[in-house]
Structure formats: C-alpha cells, structure tokens
Amino acid sequence: MKLITHNMLTSKCLKGVVTGYPLAINATDIKVKEVDFNPEFISRVIPKLDWEVLWVAADSIGHSDGLPRSLENKYDENEEFLKKAHKVLLEVEVEEGHLTCPESGRQFPISKGIPNMLLNEAEVQ
C-alpha cells in the first residue's frame, strides 16, 4: 500500500463511525521501490489529496524527513519538494501491518501490500 492510497481510505462504512479518517498506520514491513519521477503528475495530484494526512502518515512510519508539514505557495515550481512528495506518495510501500479506524479501533490487516477493508455484515452501517 502506497501512501497515496492510504490518503483515500476511510472506515466510515463501519456502523457507528462518522468520518473514519484518517486511518492510523502500523507497519511491520516497509519497502521503498523506485518509481519514475513525473513532476507533472505529482503537481496535479496534490490538490486532490489531504496533505496534512499524508504528512502525518509519512511521519508515523518514519518517512517524513525534509517533507514540509504544510504546503507552500507555488510548490509545483519547487522540484526538490516535488521529488520528496513523489517518494512518499509512490515509492514508500507498506507491505505488512495494519490500519486502525480512529473512532472504533477496528483494525484492517495489510498483507502482501494489500489492505483488507472487508467488513462482516454485522459491522456495516
């Protein structure tokens, strides 16, 4: 699971959960896999994401080095910044671990890089 994907996941379909966002990450195996740098894509996708949530997620798994906690103006012109954003969005992968719902504490296992968000019938809203 890449952090760009974590940025879009919620547990709000759990019964009794209001926002279920962001999910906490507990990682037991993290890999960094090289991905071609595409600054145009990074600039275009950042406005669609929650930057604060990305920063906290990266920090919680030890990958926030040099990453600004809030977005500066004209970040799309700052190649150094875009490279760092590229790394945390696309190159850092949580292979094993789990995600935790911030409201209910329900855990969602991550296995072989794939989060399992399936709920049983009794848990669904």
Binding site: I4, T5, L9, C13, Y21, I114, M117
Partner: peptide, 28 residues
C-alpha cells in the same frame, strides 16, 4: 484477484495499488 491485479500491473510497469474491499465503499 487483488494479488493477480497487482502483479499484472507491476509486470506491465503500471504505477498501481490494489485494495480488498466491497466495491468502492471504503474510499473518501
């Protein structure tokens, strides 16, 4: 299927993630 999708994407060099879930219910 999640595993196979991920492998197919990786094999063809597509930047990708796979999530096991019911339809699209766990996305923002």
């Amino acid at each position: 299927a999640c595993i196979m999708s991920k492998k197919t994407a990786e094999y063809n060099k597509v930047i990708f993630d796979s999530v096991r879930m019911d339809l699209a219910s766990s996305f923002a």
